[in-house]
């Protein structure tokens, strides 16, 4: 019997979901994502990642990126390799798990982005505690997610794919409320 082919698909239709007051909610394309879990001690993974992908292992709350892709801190003992297909040689240093379609990524960008997020997450979003390139695991509208500052007014939000519609719904509702308040 032929093996059934399973194709990874984005949880949400890719592209712009809402634009209000120059602030944009954008469903990002689904990149290749692999979680790297080194277990106790991460020196071997740091060495392998540098050798095979030219990326350093980020510190907690950090993100390391290059032309090839990025490595994102993703919690205690967890890193996410985003972009490149993982070198099989990493497998000796960490447990690799394919996550491409397991998470959904949404970009929130614009002058109202921070005010929208302030209603959805308990994180301190000011420059001093979340500078450009910083990442955090936190609550986003009561869902456990990952939030990365990718621009001065741009935030990339990631939640499990099962919560994708809820995230989009919450973001749209909140942006509408914040924009309406601005228009008063």
């Amino acid at each position: 019997m032929a093996e059934p082919m399973l194709k990874a698909q984005n949880a949400l239709p890719q592209g712009e979901a809402l634009v209000l007051g120059d602030t944009r909610i954008d469903v990002l394309p689904m990149p290749r994502m692999t979680s790297l879990m080194p277990g106790p001690g991460h020196a071997a993974l740091a060495k392998a990642l540098r050798k095979h992908h030219g990326l350093d292992l980020p510190d907690p709350g950090g993100r390391v990126s290059s032309d090839e892709g990025e490595c994102l801190w993703f919690g205690l003992g967890q890193y996410m390799l985003i972009g490149p297909a993982p070198s099989p040689l990493l497998a000796g240093a960490a447990t690799l798990t394919e996550q491409s379609d397991a998470w959904t990524s949404v970009l929130l960008e614009g002058p109202l982005a921070r005010q929208v997020l302030a209603r959805l997450t308990p994180l301190d979003l000011r420059d001093a505690s979340l500078p450009l390139g910083a990442t955090a695991r936190s609550e986003i509208a009561h869902m456990m997610g990952s939030l990365t500052r990718v621009g001065s007014e741009a935030f990339r939000l990631m939640v499990f794919r099962s919560m994708a519609q809820t995230l989009l719904h919450e973001l749209k509702d909140t942006l509408e409320a914040v924009a309406a308040r601005q228009a008063l």
Partner: peptide
């Protein structure tokens, strides 16, 4: 120790 000061709800 990893994330810094966070709200109780987390």
């Amino acid at each position: 120790p990893l994330c810094g000061a966070r709200d109780l709800r987390e």
